[in-house]
Amino acid sequence: MSNAPVFEIDPKAFWADPYPALKRMRAEAPIAYVPQLGATLITRRDDIFTQEKRIDVFSSDQPEGLMTVLMGQNMMRKDGADHAAERKAVFPTVSPKTVRDVWTAQFRARTAEVLDRIASHGRCDLVKDFALPVSGEALKAMTGLTNMSYAEMDRVSQGMIDGCANYAGDPEVEANCHDCTGSIDRHIDDRMPQLRETPDHSLLSVQMQAGLSDAQIRANVKLAISGGQNEPRDAIAGAAWALLTHPEQLAMVLAGEASWMQAFEEYARWISPIGMSPRRVARRDTVNGVTFEPEDRVFLMFGSGNRDESVFARPDKFDITQDASASIAFGAGPHFCAGAWASRALIADVALPMLFERFAGLRLSPPEAARFGGWAFRGPLSVPVGLG
Rank of each mutant, 00 (worst) to 15 (best):
P5T: 04
E28S: 10
A29C: 06
Q36V: 03
Q36D: 01
A39H: 05
R44I: 14
R45Q: 09
R45K: 07
T68D: 06
V69R: 12
L70Y: 14
N74I: 01
N74Y: 02
D79F: 13
A81C: 10
K88R: 14
K97Q: 12
D101R: 15
F107C: 05
R110V: 07
A112Y: 08
S120C: 12
H121M: 07
F130Q: 02
A131I: 03
L132N: 02
A138S: 09
A141R: 15
L145I: 07
A168L: 15
P171E: 11
I188Y: 01
T198W: 10
H201I: 08
I217L: 13
S226H: 00
R233I: 05
D234S: 14
T245L: 12
E248T: 09
L254F: 06
A263G: 03
E265G: 06
R269W: 03
V281K: 04
R283P: 01
E293P: 04
G303P: 13
S304R: 06
N306T: 06
R307D: 00
R307T: 00
D308R: 14
R314E: 04
P315H: 08
F318V: 10
T321G: 13
T321A: 10
Q322M: 06
G331P: 01
F336W: 10
F336N: 11
C337T: 04
R344I: 01
L352W: 01
A360Q: 05
A370H: 04
F377T: 06
G386M: 09
